[in-house]
Design a binder for these strands. Structure first.
Length: 308
RNA sequence: GGUGCCAUAGCUCAGUUGGUAGAGCAAAGGACUGAAAAUCCUUGUGUCCCUCGUUCGAUUCGUGGUGGCACCA
């Protein structure tokens, strides 16, 4: 199933741009964690004369550095970067906000550039920028908290039965064993007073730029070796201390992140430090695999193999 | 050198009263619309160390090897 294949510029806008200005292109460079996106993107950005718009749901936080493999100060100075260390873990953030902020930025930057480079591994964020995300009413915290509580106590099955009543269409589509998905659908149904499936149109929004996808990949074994090695390096750089300093925020979404939660478990005495480090490696590997699955659905993407 | 124990999936091991095998972990594949580095679904992985023998049939029993561990010299 191709990901949003019909997402091309609408005819009128194409005419408008070819008449007055050159068409604008957003190059989206993506790849699994640890492939080597950072180095590659800096070289590519310099070649294109473009800044880098980061599309990374974790590097966006200023409190997270070592554990999210933030580019070094030298790398950040080599090319202007956006959306790196710009937000706080303490502030609520979401794909929707990211979409808005990036689109506003693109409007500005395209005035100076014909080609812009976006780089990152957060698939949902890439989708939001390239194809848009439906407008869903705000859900207040209390409702979410109540439903989360009920999810824990009553289990997914009870809540998915409730979803079946409120939104039979979505119930038939959704993975009813997935608490996150059931909970979201349910909270939107309740907050909006209408079925989630009526809100989630899943139709691409028009964008006034073209998109080109590049997926960076490398031999699986080599990728995993790099991930394992990088985790060791993170530990040498002081990931343990960084995680310790994040303990007060461990309940926040931003800290539900590979590299931190495993160390939190260690602090709780649930595992030894060595075990925690091994788990960070494993979970990073699994994350990389999930990313590759996601990227595999971008129709027309150019896959570039890198490596020795 | 002698004696004993062990050798089965990538790893740790279970098992077959003789009918070619299964757990955990690792791994592989997939899903994905405001938590997305999140959350969830599916799936195996095999010269059962080698040799010869007994047997209709040996991974299973026996002989002899090889390797590992332990104890004794």
């Amino acid at each position: 199933m191709p990901r949003r294949p019909e997402a091309t510029i609408d005819k009128q806008k194409t005419v408008f741009f070819t008449d007055l200005v050159k068409p604008k292109t957003l190059i989206v460079l993506m790849g699994p964690t640890g492939v080597g996106k950072t180095d590659y993107s800096i070289a590519l950005a310099q070649q294109l004369g473009s800044p880098i718009i980061s599309c990374d749901s974790r590097q966006i936080y200023k409190e997270l550095n070592i554990g999210v493999a933030r580019p070094t100060p030298e790398q950040l100075n080599a090319v202007p970067h956006y959306f790196i260390a710009t937000h706080s873990v303490q502030d609520y953030y979401s794909v929707g906000k990211y979409e808005q902020e990036v689109l506003a930025l693109l409007d500005d930057l395209f005035a100076q550039h014909d080609t812009l480079l976006m780089v990152g591994g957060s698939g949902l964020y890439i989708d939001a920028v390239c194809f848009g995300i439906d407008d869903v009413p705000e859900v207040d915290e209390e409702l979410r908290a109540t439903l989360t509580q009920r999810m824990i106590i009553e289990g997914v099955d009870t809540l998915s039965q409730e979803l079946k009543l409120l939104d039979p269409d979505y119930y038939n589509e959704v993975d009813i064993k997935n608490p996150a998905r059931v909970l979201r659908a349910l909270e939107v149904c309740i907050a909006a007073g209408k079925p989630f499936s009526k809100i989630r149109r899943n139709s691409p929004k028009n964008r006034n730029f073209e998109v080109r996808f590049i997926v960076l990949n490398r031999d699986r074994e080599e990728l995993y070796n790099r991930i394992n090695l990088r985790v060791n390096q993170m530990m040498e750089q002081g990931l343990l201390e960084e995680a310790k300093s994040m303990l007060p925020y461990r309940h926040l979404n931003a800290l539900k992140t590979v590299g931190y939660r495993e160390l939190f478990d260690h602090f709780d005495g649930k595992c030894t430090l060595d075990e925690a480090v091994e788990l960070i490696k494993r979970n990073s590997r699994r994350y990389a695999k999930r990313q590759l699955t996601w990227f595999g659905r971008y129709e027309g993407a150019e896959w570039r193999e890198v490596g020795s």
